[in-house]
């Protein structure tokens, strides 16, 4: 009896979490143009979606920004975390806590301040400013993820590598990088998803010349929800599901 209750309770929570997404996915196959009543199965909306030029372009832009910003943030963040670990310098602790401040600060504040900054230095908003903004808000997440792993290492591990004849570069390549790889991949995946679905910061830091998917959807939804939006959301859900599965598979292997 207790077991049944436990399962039911858990099922309820998961239903609560996933019903909206299930509804969305189901309606993406609905023949009706107006999403509220079911009129039969169709793949039309997916066809419409993949032939919608501007939408596909926005999707491509989003992917480019997400891939490049997460990669740049991962490289910089990994090097940054390593520097915090390897070197002792004045203001090291204060600087590290600023990384957390950046992570916790509201998107709206970051969006506005970045916009002000770009205007001040005379950079017109577009692809470049958007990329810079995304790198900025992804960077602390990578740093924190990588630093958490690096600070769990044996404190002599660098000394050992140097002692055995490795140069600074060899030590980083043959010891640090492989040992940090799970955290680096985790940081990259986190950055990728953060960048892919960011609305608020992007809203302030890109211009009409460079449209990305979340903003495009946002502007489309203002005119009513179209079924191709459902289809698009279903596709994006599938992508994140895949990402999570890959990440899970990778870490399960690592922890074995």
């Amino acid at each position: 009896m207790k077991k049944i209750f436990q399962s039911a309770y858990l099922a309820f929570i998961f239903l609560f979490l996933y019903i909206p997404i299930i509804v969305l996915v189901v309606y993406s196959f609905n023949t009706s143009r107006f999403s509220t009543n079911w009129q039969g199965f169709t793949l039309d909306w997916y066809r419409v979606l993949f032939t919608d030029g501007p939408l596909m372009e926005a999707f491509a832009n989003s992917l480019i920004i997400a891939l490049s910003s997460s990669t740049i943030a991962t490289v910089l963040g990994t090097l940054g975390a390593f520097a915090f670990y390897r070197y002792r310098f004045l203001g090291r602790k204060i600087m590290y806590s600023f990384v957390y401040v950046l992570m916790m600060s509201p998107d709206i504040v970051m969006g506005i301040s970045l916009l002000m900054f770009f205007i001040t230095i005379g950079l017109s908003v577009g692809a470049t400013t958007l990329l810079l903004a995304h790198v900025t808000f992804c960077l602390p997440f990578v740093m924190v993820t990588v630093y958490a792993r690096i600070s769990g290492f044996d404190r002599h591990i660098i000394d050992v590598a140097k002692d055995l004849g490795a140069s600074e570069l060899q030590m980083f390549r043959h010891v640090m990088l492989p040992m940090l790889m799970p955290a680096i991949i985790a940081g990259w995946l986190l950055s990728f998803t953060l960048s892919l679905d960011d609305v608020i910061v992007s809203f302030f830091t890109t211009g009409p010349s460079f449209e990305i998917l979340p903003l495009k959807i946002y502007s489309m939804v203002r005119l009513g929800i179209k079924p191709e939006i459902n289809a698009l959301s279903a596709v994006m859900f599938l992508v994140s599901l895949l990402t999570v599965t890959i990440a899970h598979f990778f870490f399960a292997k690592e922890n074995k």
Binding site: D154, D159, A161, D163, P178, M179
Partner: peptide
Amino acid sequence: VNTVFQSYALFPH
């Protein structure tokens, strides 16, 4: 010269 550390610090990977 080479050193053997108290904690060994073997490369875990």
